[in-house]
């Protein structure tokens, strides 16, 4: 059974729903064969998803959320540090307790709860965000150290109502189950693409002395480079497939095998 022939045709209702979902992109999607098929998938998911998700509006899901600050009571801030940084394209200034991690700051103060606390000690990767292009752990980053930096969280990856290709690939390849590690996995995977382009090595790179060119990553290379993101549900093979698809630019087959 293959993925392609499993796409249910769109009903008029679905088209309408899709129009509600992505008004700007609809024409382009409908005009382009490749994109159409691609987006039909997203649509059949996205449509139901929005509905399933306790009625979050579509715009709310795909639009970049504003990082609105939840003001902290003044008594609640000790050794306050004034901080200005860019989060998901928006400038924000706030005063934080010197002890506050970037993770707790985005979650508890900026209402960006996509980044997750899985261990709070740099041992799981669920809190992975991208700072100035580098994937880092927000649980081991003091917010105070982010002065002037550009921070991207999972909420900042989609662009103009369009998911990042990595987000789409994770949906297609079912690169998650419970979804809790997913924001960290995706941020990590997005940064991994850049590292591979730079030609960065990993511990499983066979000839470390060979430098310079962009890396075409093997599955084991992706596995090693993603080993800082624990997925307890065990979606690893699907995560690797999703990343391979985006990294290689070629579709990775999905097999659903039945016998007997």
């Amino acid at each position: 059974m293959s993925e392609e022939n499993q796409n249910p045709d769109l009903t008029d209702d679905e088209k309408r729903l899709f129009a509600d979902l992505m008004p700007e992109d609809l024409k382009e999607i409908m005009d382009s064969g490749f994109n159409r098929r691609h987006f039909l998938k997203l649509m059949s998911i996205g449509g139901a998803s929005v509905l399933a998700a306790n009625l979050l509006g579509a715009e709310q899901v795909l639009a970049r959320p504003l990082a609105t600050e939840q003001a902290a009571a003044t008594a609640a801030i000790e050794n306050g540090v004034k901080l200005s940084f860019n989060i998901n394209g928006a400038s924000r200034s706030l005063t934080v307790d010197s002890r506050m991690t970037l993770l707790d700051t985005v979650r508890e103060r900026l209402q960006l709860t996509g980044s997750k606390k899985g261990c709070d000690h740099g041992q799981c990767g669920a809190c992975t965000v991208i700072i100035d292009g580098q994937r880092v752990l927000s649980c081991l980053t003091l917010a105070a150290t982010c002065e002037g930096k550009k921070v991207t969280t999972i909420e900042g990856l989609a662009n103009n109502n369009q998911l990042h290709p990595m987000q789409e690939a994770f949906i297609k390849h079912d690169g998650f189950q419970c979804g809790y590690c997913t924001p960290g996995q995706i941020c990590s995977a997005v940064a991994l693409l850049g590292e591979a382009k730079k030609g960065d090595a990993s511990y499983v790179t066979s000839n470390i002395k060979q430098t310079g060119s962009a890396q075409q990553l093997s599955e084991d290379e992706i596995r090693e480079r993603m080993s800082g993101n624990i997925c307890r549900c065990g979606a690893y093979p699907n995560i690797v497939a999703a990343i391979m698809e985006v990294h290689s630019g070629k579709p990775v087959d999905q097999h659903f095998n039945f016998a007997g």
Partner: peptide, 16 residues
């Protein structure tokens, strides 16, 4: 059929 997870969009956007 192997329908993609309907909660997938929320999970990949950090909105779940």
């Amino acid at each position: 059929t192997p329908l993609n997870r309907i909660d997938g969009l929320l999970k990949v956007t950090g909105k779940a």
